[in-house]
């Protein structure tokens, strides 16, 4: 088995609430992380992302002016982003099904519903580092495969169908 040595990772935490940033930073330092950068809105977060090139982004959803969904879409621009593959963990109070789908469709890697816990945050970090999902690029989507537990055989089968029908795989 493997675990994640967080001291080797650089994090960017984006949240308009200073107390929440402090909580997340405290947890990350507890995991052993030394490099934690912070931003208080999506626009500042995007700038910080380009400057510091973090290994993992942790963002809130609801922020004034430029929210976590818009931020994710900007980071997932394959032709302009400094690292469109960066894992994005969204920490949010939203637990509704439609919200989860919206985050997934924007390209969020993992969601963590508040209240936040050390175990929950560590589990999400471990997942994006140890078992990252493949990325999908279609005309309408760029981001982690939106189906969890994807197996290579599924791609083969769908590829075969696509080749047969000439329709392609669609928006996976």
């Amino acid at each position: 088995m493997f675990r994640v040595d967080c001291s080797r990772l650089r994090f960017l935490v984006i949240d308009d609430n200073g107390y929440m940033r402090r909580i997340i930073r405290t947890l990350l330092h507890g995991f052993g992380t030394r490099e934690v950068f912070e931003a208080e809105d999506g626009a500042a977060g995007l700038e910080s992302f380009a400057t510091h090139l973090p290994d993992v982004v942790i963002t809130d959803w609801s922020m004034p002016v430029f929210d976590g969904i818009e931020l994710t879409k900007m980071i997932r621009q394959p032709d302009t982003s400094p690292n469109p593959f960066v894992p994005i963990i969204m920490v949010t109070g939203y637990a509704e099904r439609n919200r989860v789908f919206e985050a997934r469709d924007a390209g969020v890697s993992e969601m963590l519903v508040k209240p936040i816990s050390a175990k929950g945050l560590y589990a999400r970090i471990a997942k994006v580092v140890l078992n990252p999902r493949p990325f999908i690029r279609t005309e309408n989507y760029f981001g982690p495969d939106r189906r969890h537990l994807v197996k290579a055989d599924q791609y083969k089968n769908r590829g075969a169908v696509a080749a047969f029908t000439g329709t392609g795989m669609g928006n996976a």
């Binding site: 990325f135 279609t138 392609g168």
Partner: peptide
């Protein structure tokens, strides 16, 4: 590439 879909298996740099 599968038709109009590209599947990118990351090389595990972070891992």
């Amino acid at each position: 590439d599968f038709g109009d879909t590209r599947v990118i298996h990351l090389g595990g740099t972070l891992r």
